[in-house]
Design a protein around this nucleic acid. Structure first.
Lengths: 221, 221
DNA sequence: TGGCAAGATTGTGTATACAAAATTTCGGAA
DNA sequence: TTCCGAAATTTTGTATACACAATCTTGCCA
């Protein structure tokens, strides 16, 4: 693998996994030494992270890890609602009913297993990822897919904020199943409604999970 | 200005203005010589263009200018509809009514002047840009704004495809005014409806303007 | 004459050196 | 004591050199 790619993946996951806290300043030489490469690949990695919106240029002093706040989470979900309702509508029209029917069944099954408090959540997460991918494929829209990809990067970051909401997973699985079923039946309105319900609940769960700051705290450091 | 910035702006406008046709292969040394800089800034420019989606990596051999097709235009408008209806809804709730009222009036005025076939369209275009900026500001959502910015880059490219639709400009101005008025009045539903109408007409105008290819031609070279 | 292999050529990936810009610190003066 | 300015240091921006990979060409052999 190329050194620039390694540097990018390394820094990216470091940021998403909160090993690098929001507000941290990164400079080229420091990271070059830490990652054991020269400055050139680090520059390229910084450039990609900036266009991802994971870091922002600090005036003449490297880059700083983008802060995450409750305000940001609300904004993310506003965009997410717009993107996912559109994607679901397209998938309901163009998608393969059988594929989504199968997903709906597997999600219902997963929901049953999730009754158990220490069930393996990873398989459920994979299932959700599979469904996202299937919707993207069905929507046949690269621009929409790219916008979703970018947003999911940021959503991945806030996921760490809302730990301990395992109790919601079963409900979430049922909601996902409802979405898949609506898409399978080609019911655009229902699919969009199901998405809105799901996202409303998901946002509420996140906002409940974070210690209620008055909306303007810069980071959860 | 930095050399990498110059290289980026130069290549970007070259692609958007169709001086570099879709499908063209660009390599580092060639562009470095053409722009009179070394390979390093060109690499950075290529990297930014790739994340813009204006070029895509050719297998190990530089980058190629991303193709534009009718299919792509439809996809862009699907995403655009999702983003702009969401932005308009937020603006209708949070925006400054007076600012949008003023925009509505100026747009109606502009529409009057556009009756004349060879009126200055540039001031109208600036007005539309101003309105886009005002909506972005009112929506107070950086994620949404960034998604819009990226999409507008691609829309700027297809604008060149639909030349000779000056006849539609007056109608478009009235549509924009209707959107601004709905936002000023805080009427979310009406603003979204007005956006949908406008985008439907705009897409139709573009599809009418391009020689009707069966949807899969790679470029308009 | 056609196919395969080896060398040459072209182009990217990375490192390093040098230059330019900016920030910080230190010193002096008000 | 505080503020302003200049120098020094740190950090980024750019160029260049080198290494490796891929591709094209050419020549040899079947």
């Amino acid at each position: 693998m190329r050194a620039s790619e390694r540097a990018y993946q390394f820094l990216r996951s470091d940021i998403i996994e909160w090993h690098l806290e929001p507000g941290t300043t990164l400079n080229e030489v420091e990271q070059a030494e830490r990652l054991g490469v020269s400055r050139t690949p680090v520059r390229e990695a910084f450039s990609r992270l900036m266009s991802d919106g994971l870091v922002e240029p600090s005036c003449g002093r490297g880059v700083i890890v983008t802060p995450v706040s409750v305000t940001n989470v609300r904004a993310m979900f506003e965009l997410r609602t717009a993107l996912e309702t559109q994607a679901a509508a397209l998938a309901a029209v163009k998608g393969d009913p059988e594929a989504f029917d199968a997903l709906a069944h597997r999600l219902e099954e997963a929901a049953v297993f999730l009754v158990d408090d220490d069930a393996d959540r990873s398989s459920y997460y994979l299932l959700v990822e599979e469904m996202d991918a299937e919707i993207d494929r069905a929507a046949q829209n690269t621009y929409l897919a790219q916008a979703q990809r970018q947003l999911r990067t940021h959503l991945g970051r806030v996921r760490k904020l809302s730990k301990g909401n395992e109790g919601r997973l079963m409900a979430a699985a049922h909601e996902h199943a409802a979405i898949a079923r609506a898409i399978a039946e080609g019911d655009v309105e229902l699919a969009q409604a199901a998405i809105r319900v799901h996202l409303s609940n998901a946002l509420k769960a996140i906002l409940d999970a974070v210690p209620d700051q008055e909306g303007e705290r810069e980071s959860a450091a």
